[in-house]
């Protein structure tokens, strides 16, 4: 599903590479934790998958497509197959829960009938039934993140990227978020989650890829966060 082959990324005006000859394979419906200290290259890894950045060398395949050969014109179609969740939720403050989720479908031109059908389903999937007409400011952090996950998943993407989704949420609520991610993963969606949260990684017992200074220092299935932290 996601295939990095010897990928190096150096940002302009920087000497040290953000990713240094990284090769990794992530299969369909896998759940992968991306761990490592700040600046180790986790976010760069996710941005490369979305083709928000281009690698300096190496090739990246996502959903069977070589990103270097994907024209800019087709990048939106790639992104429709990838859902994204962030630490800061990124909801639209002037739209309610339903509208925030529906927005993701409206802007890719889905018919209204389809939107009316799938949005309530996905709101229920993330556990927000009955809160469709709340505004984001009326929701707790955990609930806001659930809205963001509903928005990321409403178009049934093949891949869900989560960049520290529990970073702004207390540990008790984080468990709920992880349950939703696990539920999404069980529908066959590949989930890649970058995180600092050792407790979560340890409890989930999923594959762990550890980055340090842009290099993969550990890749183990059913791993834990590691001793150093």
């Amino acid at each position: 599903m996601i295939h990095f082959d010897n990928v190096t990324k150096v940002y302009a005006n920087q000497n040290r590479p953000a990713l240094d000859h990284v090769s990794v394979d992530i299969d369909k419906s896998e759940f992968v934790f991306l761990v490592g200290p700040s600046g180790s290259g986790k976010s760069t890894f996710l941005r490369l998958i979305l083709k928000e950045e281009k690698p300096n060398s190496g090739t990246i395949h996502v959903a069977g497509k070589d990103l270097s050969r994907l024209s800019n014109f087709k990048v939106p179609h790639l992104r429709r197959r990838i859902g994204c969740v962030f630490q800061d939720f990124r909801l639209l403050p002037n739209k309610n829960v339903y509208e925030n989720v529906a927005f993701a479908l409206e802007v890719i031109g889905k018919p209204r009938r389809f939107i009316r059908k799938v949005v309530p389903e996905v709101i229920e999937l993330v556990g927000l039934e009955g809160k469709a007409h709340r505004m984001p400011e009326e929701l707790s952090g955990g609930e806001q993140q659930r809205v963001a996950m509903a928005r990321a998943f409403v178009n049934r993407p093949m891949i869900l990227l989560a960049d520290e989704p529990t970073g702004n949420i207390d540990p008790a609520t984080s468990i709920g978020i992880m349950k939703v991610l696990d539920r999404i993963n069980r529908t066959g969606t590949t989930v890649v989650m970058a995180t600092h949260d050792a407790a979560i990684v340890d409890s989930m017992r999923k594959r762990v890829v550890e980055l340090e200074d842009g290099k993969i220092v550990r890749d183990q299935s059913r791993g834990v966060y590691g001793q150093a932290y």
């Binding site: 939106p76 992104r79 990124r90 802007v107 890719i108």
Partner: peptide, 16 residues
């Protein structure tokens, strides 16, 4: 904010 989300969910350039 809107345009960032539109890009993220794969709205085409025309739509944005």
């Amino acid at each position: 904010r809107e345009t960032a989300i539109m890009r993220l969910v794969g709205a085409s350039n025309v739509y944005i």
